[in-house]
Write a protein that binds this DNA or RNA. Structure first.
Lengths: 233, 233
DNA sequence: TTCTACTGGCGAACACCGTTCGCGTCAAGT
DNA sequence: ACTTGACGCGAACGGTGTTCGCCAGTAGAA
């Protein structure tokens, strides 16, 4: 018995109209999901659903979820703007790249968590690394220190972005983020036994004060300013 | 029909002899597992198996896996040795606490990954935080900067420990860890297009040189030395 | 002593996850 | 027109955290 023409009509038309999927489409869909639902929302099933298919279809274009995460991370690295080299402003330029990376990671929610587990060897990650090393060299930092400092700064940027995404995640329910958490945490620090934790008790205010950006900048400044002492020019 | 006395004999004796489980026993078992199998090996089923029971039994003593991870982290925080305050050596003492925390995190494999997602408010974590702030205050660092710096340093320590555990993890197969990965990575950097990534190409050697500890110390020194400029005494 | 009431351990199930296998369909080559 | 090849993808496997409800065992009341 031949297939019903009606059934074919119902099925066939959506085949050619179906979203064509390839590596890039998958990566883009995954980035769309991570932005709104976080890295835990990025599952093979969830991505596949975006193309109205099953998870196994993705494995034709991506060998594993791990590879997909690397592709996502490198795609995001491609979004950091890299200023043209300006040697006198080398320190400021390093801060600019660090801030841009930080901002773009935060703009993708949780993604920093995955980034921490990735050895950044993709083309766009290399581009950012190369640029930062170039700035340090232009500033007179010896190559060995430049290489290490670049590594440390990106580690710091990623770790801070991850930590910030967690805080933001816990406050996802109906409250302005900084206010409530800061209040709760200070209340906790102020109530801690003074004989065991004198400094925390005495400085509860300082411990919770300052918004996330100020803390990020404080640590970043320590790292970048410290580079000055290695300059040999 | 009554239950067979034989069956009861076979079952009953192991009931009182069964490992009695409580919060502490569960946390200890989980730490035992994370040491050898990593954080992904720590599942409720795996822990329960340690007590020859099912996962649901654990929920009588622990409200969620998240709480368990917090308990594990704080237990580990209790292992860092805290030297008695010695104001003239304040910088060196900060390095000591940072190194001790780093070492103990690494000694527990992957655990740093979970630690990154935890707001350190447990008693032992507070103890370490309080001690480090005390050292900074003793060194003349203003309270606000001390609070922030403590936060940044522990963030750095945890992030580095996590990154190191990843590298160690990828090399788990049959190769001495540093040698093989360093060789592969340098080969990759040396083969990268010179017009796109001139600095990476030129300094491949510097990028991969230095063992993990040297890199950790380099970043830690930047953070701690940088504190000097805030000292007001 | 016997019956009842309750408490707490835990087996089974639910809804997810990443990944694999192999079937069935469709398209291109002969 | 028929064969052959490739490829999309449904279903399944073995895992995850968590919940529900049963049932054994004990303690207390009659």
């Amino acid at each position: 018995m031949k297939e019903s023409p009606f059934l074919r009509r119902a099925i066939k038309p959506q085949r050619p109209a179906k979203n064509p999927l390839g590596r890039d489409e998958i990566v883009r869909a995954a980035l769309r999901i991570v932005k709104t639902e976080g890295i835990d929302g990025v599952s093979m099933r969830r991505i596949a659903a975006e193309f109205e298919t099953g998870p196994s279809s993705l494995y034709a274009h991506v060998t594993s979820k791990d590879e997909l995460l690397q592709l996502m991370f490198d795609e995001v690295c491609g979004m950091v703007e890299i200023p043209p080299l300006d040697p006198p402003r080398w320190k400021e330029q390093i801060l600019e790249i660090a801030r841009a990376s930080h901002r773009i990671l935060l703009d993708h929610y949780d993604l920093a968590r995955a980034a921490l587990a990735i050895v950044p060897t993709g083309p766009n990650a290399l581009r950012a690394s190369d640029a930062m090393i170039g700035m340090m060299l232009a500033g007179g930092v010896p190559a060995q220190h430049a290489a290490w400092a670049m590594d440390r700064i990106f580690l710091y940027v990623t770790a801070d972005a991850y930590e910030m995404s967690i805080w933001r995640g816990t406050a996802t329910e109906e409250e302005a983020f900084p206010a409530e958490l800061e209040r709760d945490l200070r209340a906790y620090f102020e109530q801690v036994p003074v004989d065991l934790y004198p400094n925390i008790r005495a400085h509860a205010q300082e411990l919770v004060s300052g918004d996330a950006e100020a803390r990020f900048e404080f640590g970043l400044a320590l790292l970048v300013d410290g580079l000055g002492k290695y300059v040999t020019k």
